[in-house]
Write a protein that binds this DNA or RNA. Sequence first.
RNA 1: GGCCCUAUCGUCUAACGGUUAGGACGCCGGCUUUUCAAGCCGUUAAUCCGGGUUCGAUUCCCGGUAGGGUCACCA
Length: 496
Amino acid sequence: MADTNNTNIVTRFAPSPTGFLHVGGLRTALYSYLLAKKSGGRFILRIEDTDRARTVPGGVENILTSLSWAGVNPDEGVILRDGEASESGANGPYTQSHRLEIYKKYADELVAKGNAYYCFCTADRLAQVKEDRQANKLPPGYDGHCKNLSKEEVENKLKNGDNHVIRLAMPDDGVCTFHDLIRGEVSFKYSDVDDQVLLKSDGFPTYHLAVVVDDHHMQVSHVVRGEEWISSTPKHIYLYECLGWTPTLFAHLPLLLNSDRSKLSKRQGDVAVLDYKEKGYLPEALLNFVAFLGWNPGDEREMFTLDELVSEFSLEKVNKAGAVFNIEKLDWYNREYLKKLDDEKLLKYIDTFMPEVARNSVNYKNILPRLMHTLLERISKGSEIAETYTENISYFFEKEKIDEGMLVWKSLKDNPNALDITRGYIAEARAILEGMPVESWDDREAIKGALWPLTEKYGRGEVLWPLRVSLSCRDKSPDPFELCYILGREEVLNRI
RNA sequence: GGCCCUAUCGUCUAACGGUUAGGACGCCGGCUUUUCAAGCCGUUAAUCCGGGUUCGAUUCCCGGUAGGGUCACCA
């Protein structure tokens, strides 16, 4: 349904499928989503696939999957400004490569109006110009060579079928000042702005043309994008002016940074949203974390669901400075959200990260539900299960060799009969456990209660340490009561 | 190099002229304890520098410095 009410904010997320959606993109999408949703407006997804050479197979799929995993879902059935039917419908996002005639039409209009011109320069000449200008310490950029071509020359070259692009003719003087919703007033001299290509020789638009045309037609009110676009904004605003349209409002977000404060990149860790999914980060955790990179509610609350973010979010509270993507904090968030999972979900979660060896154990199905909470205390994400499996987990699923020297508690170390004495303790413990009613095995406290008199008789470390070691074959593990509970009667009696 | 943006603990940040500069993560320490982990408690730690404006600057202005972004027929 058409919405002509301007009080509602319309935003869009416009990634290009040239790789995988990364966490910075997710944050941009999230902020755009929050801004629109908070006002009761719409959030549009638009695929900017105007670079044929760099478009990656599966790129669109990856964007869609990532967004939907995170729960940042675009609206459907968007109506365009001029009333044409929504190409998006319920089936997918807008895609620029499907809208080529629209951009062409406006590029032609711009040429007709004298705001743009044909350029026939070859790549070689362009490279030469760039080199020369740099040698003269001028900023690299187009020198305007084709701007002054006569009508006849242009027509001849066109008739000739010469390769050409269409460039925007930037004014020689004047200043572009705009109010960035995050940074305040920003201005650029038009003379510092290059004559950008609008339509490439393959007939595809560049970002600059496509973004303006689409944002206008899709009734976008607020453009939320990364700071790297701020210096291109004058081109966009000028384009709006030439086309006789009202520019959108702009909000340029601070960048996400590596720990060395360079722009977040693949080299220093994972950046793809789905990498985080695979490592076992919960979408709620990633989203909550990423939301707080450059924004905060103004008080000391830190845990926010997507819905809570919608009601709390405001652009005024978005910071200006770049933010380091700090994995430790993400890990903390993830564990907090993991703790909130109910047993059924936690079981499923832990299960998906368990290695094959564990799965093949006959006791797997019995042990896992009892082990999961204990395990959760030791990990902050699923991928750590595999990393720490051999060291800290494998013994639950298969009995391993015990180093008998490890069996003796430190207080008995000097006693020549330490091992025999310790074996005696273990034997007594075993007898107690064997005589324990079957239902007590489901109750940690009952197990503890049964074993406790022994510790009072011989000492805690003297009894508990060897018991724990003989059950886990490790010098580090949960306490013996916990081990008994997790392993179950049969396995415990078997191991002791 | 030109242009633009930015600057509070190691990190994410609060303080929109007056606070012992607050919180969170991490680090470190303590408690608990049979080990490990978890949990609880606590400590450490910051206003980039220099000038203004002001009775008073983290906060406003100017200048440095540092970092980042951008200057493609890439987005």
